[in-house]
Structure formats: structure tokens, C-alpha cells
Design a protein around this nucleic acid. Structure first.
Lengths: 344, 344
DNA sequence: CTGTTAGCGCTTTCAT
DNA sequence: ATGAAAGCGCTAACAG
């Protein structure tokens, strides 16, 4: 049924080692033999047994992605799929296969990871989330398994990670509104315990300060990464006596909520309130009006994560001397929601 | 570095075979030995080498998912991610790992699949798409590799597949509008070459006929699975002299386009035009008004696909005598967009 | 340039 | 109930 090296060797009248050498492109092999053997392999439909290969080479040419548990939100799904596409594409270009794994709870997750890594089924792992204290990261680090984090973590500062510079991104978003002439700018943030929320808030503050604009505590509200948060934030802002003329919003989904609310109240975007948000999901350009958004290059994030991981698998020269944090450039996509300069 | 069965055996003062027997829960083994060996394994941190295991057992306990190439659309990403979640969850419950693979073009795809299957890295494959003539399916079928298709294909009628009954789903959607008192109902379809478009159109027709309602050719328009199609369809319908009072729309995204257009023209949903669409993406309940939609149970689709595949791997009793098509039940989620009965 | 040998870590006869 | 030995398909020395 299965064609092995041995079979090919017999059929070609050479030794198995010779066939193996042809396979691995060994230098010291006669051109003639090589051609003959290749012909036979083709003819017999030989395919190397990957398992046998990796058993002896002690390397699997595959990596795994650890998905966080449920996270049933819309953005998450879009985000992860984009990420996965990036990872799979890059990995496949480097000749690596991608295994995807998750667990119902942290223990299951850990079990899976340890089975995969200790069982030598994969050479390294990509983590798609960052928790505060993470048994999985602890496990990977303490066993010296190659791994890279998409995002950033306070605790594991030194680990390989690929991330957006969210402070800078928020700074850019805010500066854009300022350059359009806005002087009263609010910020709709996400859950305060998420690093991404904090970073973006910080970037917003930095821009406001650097431009010497007024900063009021009531112009900053926190919420979730959900439409509803935007809706509530909007109604809060629009009832303020001295309300902002523009908003920086932590996520496009939240912007949709803001938009919906403004619509209901017959406010116009961008004339009554200008908006810039983050992540540039496909819907951002389809809403009315289209939303200006910071594109964080999700696909690229995944692509790079895979690249960094595979590099670290192939050359475990621990300290490169360079940084372990890889920043993926973002860019602001200006659309109608911020195309209006308020009269002073 | 790595702990092997041999190491454990030596440490426990037994033979490797004994350790192996303990591992596989062999019946003829003394309880005492078993307990001792297990303790030592624990203590030494033994983890079985998966590659070695599958080299000898000729089974890998893993399956692969073949992603279609780009398909950069919003819905696709949501759809695939849901599917993947379902697949990964089920597979992991059955003790299987999931490998995910794709290719830039059909040839690359075929190469990857054949490397994985012929190279015995995976036991079977799940295809997430259905093309007319598919080299990958041909390859899998002719080599007798276990595989299951999510969707349905005209050509490969007999292969294992998991799908929605789209005819029935469209019938249900249409019947719902009819039961609300609508008598002039239009249909916004997708690309006519997609089976899903055709099936849904057929279900719509069936419902219209069975209820003896008028059916006009100009009440059916075709387009893409994109917002714009909805927008255009809407403007076409609303300019008709005798326009429909309700629409069955092939996909939620398309409904958003319809909605946007109606909004601009100051028409009200559902009063001026009622809507029901398909797929029930998370945004469907968040739009204003929320859209009635047929939930096709994407997660469930993936879950079942994995189940069916793994079953067929484990018991290759070719013909079960039963069907090879597994239908996942759908259900209509009624929301505001269809909650209005027109006066006759 | 090519053949021989040993062994990766595991399971599975066949003995005992 | 346990041990010894053979072999899954491949690669990597070591000899020629």
C-alpha cells in the first residue's frame, strides 16, 4: 500500500541511503543516479512519511496556535481569522504546518499545550491573547519552548511578542482630530483592565497635552468593546453642557454604537461630532458615514508572529541583542466621519 | 533531556514493554506494577512521543481543515472562524488535533493536501468550500482518504457532507412573511452560480407557489453577498410600480445594504418593507432595526463535520447504508425587521 | 560516490 | 503477569 524508501531503493537497484540522499539533496551523489531515483519515486508515487522523518530529526516543522477560550464577540472572530490567515500563509511559506488548539478552561489548555510540546508534535507556539498570570506562558518559558505572544503583557516583558504600538496609534488618531481644528476631544475607552485600553488612553492624553488642549475628566468614559458602550457613551457626551466636538473611540464596534445613538438623536456625523476609532474592521468603510479608523494590520501581525517564531525555532541563539518586541506599523484611514473642521 | 519509556522502565526496574502496557491500559498487568510505574512516570515527567506512536500505529489522531484561498469578505471570515471553533472543539473532545492548511492556488492546495495525507501526518480532511470541479476532492476520493465537505456539491453527490437545508430554510423564511400577511414578496439572491443561491431561491419559489401567491419575475434580483448588492436591489424594488411589501434576502450583509438604502430614502422598516435574511451574523441583532434572520448554526456545522469525519476515520465501514448527507437544523430568529402586518 | 549499520521512541508478537 | 526481540520509515554516522 504505502511506498517506502526501501521499495524505491529496491526498484532502482540502489541502497536506501542513496535514495535518502537524493531526497535531501545531498551534494555527493551522481547526477545520473539522482535522476533515475527521482524518476522511480515519481513513478511509484513515493511520499516521505513525515512522522518517521520527525522522529529521527527531532523536529516537526509545525507550530501551534493557542486560541483563547470563548470570546464570542464579533470583533474577536474577525480578528482571529485574520490573524490565522497571516500565520498560516507565512508558516506555509516557510514549510511549516499549523496546528490549532484550544481548551475549555485554563487547565485543559495547559494539558493540550504540554501534550503538543512535550510530545514533540510541534516545535513552538503562538499565543493569541495576554492574560495577567498565565500558566501556559509559565510552562512554555520554564521549559524553554519557543513561543511568541501576539499582544503584550506586563508580566512577561522579555518574551518574544508582536504587537501594535497602541500609544502611538492613539496619539496619531487624536492628532488627526486636532489637526482638523478640534479642541474639545473626548475618549471612549474599553475595559480598564485591558492593556490595549490603557495604552490607547495614554496616547490620547499625550496628544492632548502636547498640543496644550484642555483635558477634562468627564470627556473620558470607559466601557466594553461593544456597541452598547458606544451608545451609552454618546448619550453621556451629548448631554454635557460643554460637549466635545470629536471623539476618539477605542474600537470600531463601539463607534457603531455611537453612530446609532447620534442617528436616533438626529445628530450629524461629522458635523456635530467627529469620530476616529481603531481596528478598521471591514464594516468601518461600509457604515454611513464611513468611519475613520486606525488600521492595525492584523494579517501582518499574524504573518510576523509566525516569522518570528519560526526564526526562533531555527536559531535558538537565545539573546539576539536586539529587542524581543516587534511592532507592526499602523496607519490611519481617513474617512468621512472625521472630515469636518469645526468653526472656532 | 527527554524522558522515554526506556528511562521510566529502568527507573522502575521493569521492562519497557511493561511500561508500554501500563500506558495503553493493557488488561493483563498487575495493579501494583501499574501503580508504581504510573508514579514514576509522573515523577519523571514522562510524555509519550506522539510521532513515534503514530509511526508504529499508522494513525495520527489528527485531521486537517482546508481553507479556501482568499475570500476576503466579512461574512467569510466570521463564518470560517465559527466553523473552526466548532471543529476544534469537537476534535479535541475526541482526542484529535486539528491542522489548518491553505494554498495560494489550487495546485499549492493539492500539494499541501497530498503531502499531509500521503505523508501520513493527518488521518482525514475537512473541506470548507465547494467548487465545481475540484482536484483536491478528486485526489481524496480516488485515494480513499476520509474526508467531509461542509456544504454541498452537485458533482460529488455521494461524498460525506454536512450542510444546511437551504431550500427548507428559504421556505421557512418566506412562509414567515406570508404568515405575517404579506402577499407581494421579493427575493434578493446571490451569485447564480453558487448552489446556496439556487437552493434558497428554490425554497422561496416553493413557498410562494404553495400559498398560491403571485410571483413576478421582476421581484427576483441577483447580486453578490455584499452590501452594495442590497443597496442596488432596494433601489430597483422601490421604483417598481407595484412593489413588494417584504423581501427575503440571501444574506445578512446584503440586508444591511437594503437597510442603508431605505434609510436614505426615508422608508421605514418593517412598515414600508419587511425583511428576513440568512446566516444571523452577530450584527443582525445590533442593527436598527434588528434583522430577522435564519440562524444556520455555523458552529454546529463545524462540530458535526468533525464528528462525521472522525467517525469515518475510526470505522471505515464504507457504506453505512444510511445517508452521507448530514443536515444541520436551522431556525428563524424573528426580530423587528419582520414584525409588521401590512393592511391588505 | 555508495552501501552498511545503528537507532529515533514506541508497539506488538512470541515466549516464558 | 512480564521480558525479549523485531520493526514502523527514516536519517546519520562510518566505512569503503
Amino acid at each position: 500500500m504505502t511506498v517506502t524508501i526501501k521499495d524505491v531503493a529496491k526498484r532502482a537497484g540502489v541502497s536506501p541511503s542513496t535514495v535518502s540522499r537524493v531526497l535531501s539533496g545531498h551534494p555527493r551523489i551522481s547526477v545520473e543516479t539522482s535522476r533515475k531515483v527521482k524518476g522511480i519515486m515519481e513513478e511509484m508515487g513515493y511520499h516521505p512519511n513525515i512522522m518517521a522523518k520527525s522522529l529521527v530529526s527531532k523536529t516537526t516543522n509545525s507550530i501551534c496556535i493557542i486560541l483563547p477560550k470563548p470570546a464570542e464577540e464579533l470583533f474577536s472572530n474577525l480578528f482571529f481569522m485574520e490573524l490565522i490567515r497571516g500565520i498560516v500563509t507565512q508558516a506555509s511559506r516557510s514549510g511549516y504546518d499549523v496546528l490549532i488548539s484550544s481548551g475549555a478552561n485554563e487547565k485543559e489548555e495547559l494539558d493540550a499545550v504540554s501534550r503538543l510540546l512535550k510530545g514533540r508534535r510541534v516545535d513552538g507556539a503562538i499565543l493569541l491573547y495576554s492574560r495577567k498570570d498565565d500558566a501556559v506562558i509559565d510552562f512554555l518559558q520554564s521549559n524553554g519552548y519557543p513561543c511568541v505572544l501576539v499582544g503584550r503583557s506586563d508580566k512577561y516583558e522579555d518574551m518574544l511578542s508582536v504587537d501594535t504600538d497602541n500609544v502611538m496609534a492613539a496619539y496619531d488618531a487624536t492628532s488627526h482630530l486636532i489637526s482638523m481644528g478640534h479642541e474639545r476631544i473626548g475618549f471612549v475607552s474599553g475595559p480598564p483592565n485591558l492593556i490595549v485600553s490603557r495604552d490607547r488612553l495614554q496616547g490620547y492624553r499625550k496628544a492632548i497635552e502636547e498640543h496644550g488642549l484642555e483635558s477634562r475628566p468627564e470627556w473620558i468614559v470607559e466601557g466594553e468593546f461593544l456597541q452598547d458602550s458606544g451608545y451609552r457613551a454618546m448619550s453621556f457626551f451629548m448631554n454635557l453642557p460643554n460637549r466635545p466636538t470629536a471623539l476618539v473611540v477605542v474600537d470600531d464596534m463601539v463607534s457603531f454604537g455611537v453612530l446609532r445613538g447620534l442617528n436616533e438623536l438626529k445628530f450629524k456625523v461629522p458635523n456635530d461630532l467627529a469620530l476616529v476609532s481603531f481596528n478598521n474592521i471591514p464594516l468601518a468603510e461600509l457604515s454611513s458615514p464611513p468611519i475613520s479608523s486606525i488600521d492595525i494590520g492584523i494579517y501582518h501581525l499574524g504573518y510576523t508572529a509566525s516569522q518570528v517564531l519560526i526564526q526562533s525555532i531555527q536559531s535558538p541563539n537565545k539573546e539576539t541583542g536586539y529587542t524581543n518586541r516587534f511592532i507592526i506599523p499602523h496607519r490611519l484611514i481617513v474617512r468621512e466621519s472625521s472630515m469636518y473642521s469645526p468653526k472656532k
